[in-house]
Amino acid sequence: MIIQILLLSGLVIFSILAILLKDLLKAALSLAVASLFLGIIFFRLGAPYAGVFEISVVAGLITVLFALTVALTRKDSEVQEARLTRLVFPLFFIIFLIIDALVMKSFLQQVPALPAGPETGTFGEVLWKSRTFDLVAQLGVILAGVLAVLALFRKKEEDKDE
């Protein structure tokens, strides 16, 4: 229980750092560390495949994408944030934390979650047989993402030709 609390605290702390740090590269790296914590939590919850995806894809690939974007937009990209934003955050966070602690338990008792029943088979069987439609949708999403990125950068090339 203590290790779980430590891991979850690490996840929340690094996520907050990712939001509050002014340097965008450090923020992206904090996000990667938070993903690492989340991946470890997934492993401990008995979800190794989701953990592997979280660490390799989110902590790895997305961090690279963020770092690349920061590098490409670094020059003159300082954005003046409102001063109060960072100062007021701890206050709001503590208020929400208290409300969360008071309300969440009774809320969880009222919300119906996934039906409890023993699962049979392996992860592969569930993913490839029960959730086949999800996989087709994933292919569609990946294709849409690739086409969107190609379309966004093609526009720039046309501008160059002109």
């Binding site: 979800a47 989701a50 039906p115 029943g117 699962e119």
Partner: peptide, 10 residues
């Protein structure tokens, strides 16, 4: 006890 389904959703 639905970790396999949850994993595929995640």
């Amino acid at each position: 006890n639905s970790i396999l389904l949850a994993q595929s959703l995640a």
